[in-house]
Structures are given as C-alpha cells and as structure tokens.
Computed example of a mutant assay.
Amino acid sequence: MSERRFIRLKESTPNLDGMRARPEGYLEATDGTVGDGPWRVRTDEHGFIVTGNDVAAGAPPLVFIGDSFVEATFTPESIRFVSQVERHLQSDGLNFRCLNGGYSGATTLQLFNVFLNKVVPLVGRGGKVVFFLPQSDLPIYFRPHSYWYPTDRYAPLLPPVEPAATDLPRGSSALTAILGLAVWAAQEFGIDLILVSSPHRNATREEDAYLARRISADQHLSLAQRRQDIRTAVHKFVATSGVTFIDADTEFLDKPSAFYDELHLNDSGHDIFAAWLADQLRIRLTI
C-alpha cells in the first residue's frame, strides 16, 4: 500500500509546557550574546506560544505568524518580542491577546497555509494578523522547485515528492504570487492583515567578525543579492496591493548588535525591536 500524503501545518505542539535547551554546538554558531537557557516554552490549545502576561478575559486576538524569528524560543518567555509588544499595547489601552505563531523553518507558502486553514477560522471577520515575511525563504528562493522544494523542511506535502512541473515560478514571481493570495484571502474574509519584513543582521564581513567567521565572501554576496531581490519585490508588491506594511528590515539594517546570529534577536535586541514594533502597530491598530 502506498504511503498517504498530507499537508503539514507548521505549528508548535498544542498544550505544551516544557524547557528547551540549546542544542549541542549551537553556541559556537552565534556571536556569544544568546542566553544560557534552558528556556520555558508553553503553548495554548491551538499551538500558539504563550506570552506569560495577564490578559483580560475576552481580549481580541492579535496573531503573529512567521518563522523562528517570531518563535524566539531561545529567549526568556517574558522577553520575546511578542510578549513585550502585548505589554506595550496594554499600557496604551490596547488590550489584545497576542498569539505567537512563529515556527522555525516556515516559508511564505507554509505561512499562507497556516493563515488560511488555522488563523482565519480562529479570528474570523474583523480579526487582526501580523504576517512576518520569513527569512526561511532564502535557501530555496531561486531553486528550480522554489516553495515546493522536495524536502521535509520545505515541501508543503509530506512525504515530499519532486514536482512533475518543470517550469514552476521561483524568486520574486513566486513570492509575490503567494503574498497576493494572502492579501486576497484576508480581504475576502474581512481580516486586517499587516505585513512585516523580518530584519536580519546586516553588516559587511570586514566590519563584523561574526559574519567573517561564519560566512564566506561568496555566501555573503549571494545572501545579499537574494535579500535585495526580496526587498525590491516586496516594496513593489506593497505599492500595488495596498496591504498595510511595516518595514522592519530597513529599520534594522544598521543594528547588527541586536542579533546573536544572522537571523535571531538577542535579549537586548528583543527589547529594542518590541518597543519599535509596538509603536508601529499602535499607529495601525488605532486607525
């Protein structure tokens, strides 16, 4: 009998309460500013990571989806930026229940699946969703099968099989097509979608010893080219789609010390990012 296939919903295990330690060798892959851990990770009945804050009963949800940048499980529960944003908004009288739907390795296509099949029926018409463009797109951005790349990490179907089509969209055409579907779905279901570009550690290898140690000159150039292509494509998409947009990528191009590696915020970076993002959201949530 052939093995049945299924669409993977990238989410944390519901009703989890445990401690997460750094994997062996993880510290060597950072600049040393990641904490020691272990870190508590709790999830609710829907698999969203708990913020640890006291929230008023009946507070409307504000859903954050993205990759490991949003997940941030190598950070104390109360310091994760989603948790801090919830407190910042509460202090301004915006009493949302912030739901952390970040998941390591999630691509834009996988996040669209989470949005359509998990978030839409959770928040309903009038719901609010913060959609972070994932850095996880980078490894497959220009590959022939792109978002349908046949591995357990990237393929939308499991077990993965190599796509039969020989001319699948890739790069900016694939990215903007999927984003277009997300924006269209949000409009059709009456959901307020806020698109956010995920920031990263940005510096030259000459001025950043961590990047010089971890990434070759050719790799650094390739990553920069892919990020610039994504940046250009997203800005063009935003200009024509009318989606609400927060450009965290551009804002944090001059803040490499906020990251403990190439993609993840350290504890002080979470403080900086949370305060900035809360200001950006406050403007957009009160319009």
Rank of each mutant, 00 (worst) to 15 (best):
S173T: 14
S197Q: 12
G180C: 11
L158I: 09
N113G: 05
D152E: 15
A239H: 13
A177V: 01
Y210T: 04
I191A: 03
L111K: 02
A233E: 05
V196G: 06
H235P: 01
I194K: 03
P134D: 00
G126Y: 11
F189V: 05
L111W: 01
S172E: 15
H220I: 02
S172C: 06
A239G: 15
A182W: 03
I215Q: 08
L116K: 15
D229H: 06
W148M: 12
L179H: 02
Q225V: 10
Q219S: 12
L109N: 00
F131M: 09
A212R: 15
S136T: 04
K236A: 14
A212Q: 09
G126N: 10
A203Q: 08
L195H: 09
L122F: 10
D192K: 13
Q219W: 05
L193N: 05
W148V: 00
S173E: 15
R214A: 14
V196H: 03
P160I: 02
Y210L: 06
F189I: 02
L223R: 13
A212N: 15
P121C: 07
F112G: 03
V130G: 02
A106G: 10
S198Y: 05
Q228T: 13
W148A: 04
D218P: 07
Q187F: 04
D208Y: 07
L221E: 15
V123T: 06
G102P: 11
Q225I: 05
L211M: 14
L138H: 04
F131H: 02
V123G: 02
A106I: 03
G126D: 04
Y147F: 15
L195Y: 08
A224E: 10
L193S: 05
S216D: 12
N117M: 07
A203Y: 04
V238K: 02
Y210G: 06
A106W: 03
A164E: 11
P160E: 00
L116P: 00
E188R: 13
H220D: 12
W148S: 04
F115W: 13
G102Y: 09
V161R: 11
T166F: 07
V234T: 08
T176G: 07
E206L: 07
Q228Y: 10
G126M: 09
Q135L: 13
R214L: 07
L157D: 07
P121I: 10
A165R: 13
I230Q: 14
T107P: 06
A182V: 13
P169G: 01
A209G: 12
I191F: 06
E162G: 05
T107L: 08
T108C: 02
V234N: 03
Q135W: 09
L109V: 12
N117E: 13
